[in-house]
Design a protein around this nucleic acid. Sequence first.
DNA 1: TGGTATAGTATGAAAAAAGGTACCGTAAGG
DNA 2: CCTTACGGTACCTTTTTTCATACTATACCA
Lengths: 119, 119
Amino acid sequence: MQKNPGQCQFVVAMDSIVGKWKPTILYHLLQGKPLRFNELRRLLPDITQRMLTLYLRELEEEEIVKRVVYPQIPPKVEYSITAYGMSLSPVLEMLHRWGVAHIERKRLKEAENERTETD
Amino acid sequence: MQKNPGQCQFVVAMDSIVGKWKPTILYHLLQGKPLRFNELRRLLPDITQRMLTLYLRELEEEEIVKRVVYPQIPPKVEYSITAYGMSLSPVLEMLHRWGVAHIERKRLKEAENERTETD
DNA sequence: TGGTATAGTATGAAAAAAGGTACCGTAAGG
DNA sequence: CCTTACGGTACCTTTTTTCATACTATACCA
């Protein structure tokens, strides 16, 4: 994809995190409890079945998420974070914290703008 | 965009970072030296003028990057990281480190696969 | 017999992101 | 007079991502 040598590690790291629903999927799995496919669907009410499947497959391929199929009918498939996937936890937490601060900053800015406009 | 309340801060943080060229642009600006439009273009040889403009405008709007126009002809416009933008530095560095480790892990894995295949 | 739940796949359409090319005005250098 | 450099904008096409809908198989329950 990106060809600039020496700094594309940003991009590599982000591919594991980026995607409309990936952060939310990871957020739930990082709680530690394995989740079944439809449990995840219920936690992400707006995701389509297709996208959930695609993202889980991607995460599985990167060994961030483990997929366990129980040979039952009706089928049971459990997704859980791998030990390796756990290494994303501090990264995501840092992003989360920066995001919270960023929102707060925006909020303050807007409040200030309104104040000076009504002066 | 994402509606799940309480955990969308990931997404907010990432919007400031995500985009095919944003990390690279930020990488260069985080070196500290202000860069002119065409200097950035030379540092990102494959980006189009259009995309560079769009990304810089986005970063400017979020106050991560400052744009200074010098009223000269031919025009001179300098882009630099803001104090606020600097707060992204540890976040990006962490992503970078994770990315490096991730690549290394992949490399080892592949090497191991080849070894066991030739056994 | 018909409905529900499970974990998906298939197919095509829509939306978003990125890319490509051409063009603008001005001025300095040859 | 022609070319280059500067920092863009306008317009259109291509690529990528996401969405919507329908469909699968099997077992259990009423």
